[in-house]
Amino acid sequence: MAITLKLNGTTHEVEADPGTPLLWVIRDELKLTGTKFGCGVASCGACTVHLDGEPVRSCQTYIEDVEGSEITTIEQMEEDPIGKAVQQAWAELDVVQCGYCQSGQIMSAVGLLRENAKPSAAEIDEYMYGNACRCATYQRIRAGIQRAAEIMEA
């Protein structure tokens, strides 16, 4: 079926069967590869994107359910004031190691800061629970979110 997607401010016409995860449309059809495949069962968060501003796991979000919604990926975060602050904090603290999960971490971190401008360590741990990092960069993710909150406040 033909589906109209609004992604990063642009409208795309894509051809995909119902039941196709948004993840694969973003990666294989639109060739935006910042959004990652990690588990396919919404258990690692590497595929996190925003749907109308809310973080969702794109591997378990089906294409027929997103028509009419605004989809935002990591590639758009430089245009988002919170996204930009998180990216700046990530670079200052060298949060990344292998980096494969970090698009998803940043998309979740932006979602958190959007609803809570100054999260505590415990609130970060709770919100970010579903974003796995096999390099275990968690310390710096926590510090990065708090640093981003500072940047936003300044």
Partner: peptide, 21 residues
């Protein structure tokens, strides 16, 4: 000293083998 691959891994531009098309 900061990592040379830090920025590209935070903005989706880093290319892993999985990203080859």
């Amino acid at each position: 000293t900061r990592r040379l691959d830090s920025v590209i891994k935070g903005n989706g531009k880093a290319k892993f083998a999985m990203d080859v098309h």
